[in-house]
């Protein structure tokens, strides 16, 4: 068992009891601080460095071939805690021979940024890796309507991300080798 030792505090010396040397020390510290490098970020001109795993505004991405990745399965709509996502399912537009009548695509995809809580569940749940929370952090608008990101806006924000799956390419090779659906 540890033995408790009560340390006796040394009585303050005369100069310590006036507190003046301590005040001078404090003044020295603050004065030297004046010449240190400033930590301020001049925001609109200087942007902060966004880390890789940052959860910014949710966006929709396309695959490297420029195809829509979202298949409007509505899992994100289902999982979204504040119910910020609204999807109107639709079909892949006519003319896309590979995907026509095979997959669905969203006709309209809206994320209400006034409701979104940036939790990232949509990104986590998406089976097609189509929705990503990227590095965009500043969203503002004058009206409530402006704050609802529609499909166009979401694709514009999302852009194209590198894809390791090449779902349609793999499907095509599989078809070419004769073991397609």
């Amino acid at each position: 068992m540890a033995k408790t030792v009560v340390l006796q505090r040394k009585p303050l010396s005369l100069s310590e009891r006036t507190y003046l040397p301590q005040i001078v020390t404090g003044l020295k510290t603050t004065f030297s601080n004046m010449f240190k490098e400033k930590v301020t970020l001049q925001y609109p001109e200087e942007k902060p460095i966004i880390p890789k795993n940052y959860r910014g505004v949710p966006t929709l991405v396309k695959d490297p071939n420029g195809r829509e990745k979202c298949v409007s399965c509505q899992l994100c709509e289902f999982v979204c805690p504040p119910k910020a996502i609204r999807i109107t399912p639709g079909s892949v537009p006519e003319g896309d021979e590979e995907r026509e009548h095979v997959e669905k695509a969203p006709q309209e995809f809206e994320i209400n940024m006034l409701r979104c809580i940036y939790c990232g569940y949509c990104q986590e749940v998406c089976p097609e890796e189509a929705i990503y929370l990227q590095d965009e952090y500043s969203s503002s608008g004058y009206t409530r309507e402006e704050m609802i990101n529609n499909k166009e806006k979401l694709y514009e924000l999302g852009g194209t991300l590198p894809d390791s799956h090449y779902k349609w390419d793999q499907k095509k090779t599989a078809e070419d080798q004769g073991n397609g659906h």
Binding site: F31, N33, M34, K36, E37, K38, V39, T40
Partner: peptide, 10 residues
């Protein structure tokens, strides 16, 4: 200004 400088701000 002085308070900013002493706290590392601008």
């Amino acid at each position: 200004k002085v308070s900013a400088w002493m706290q590392g701000r601008v």
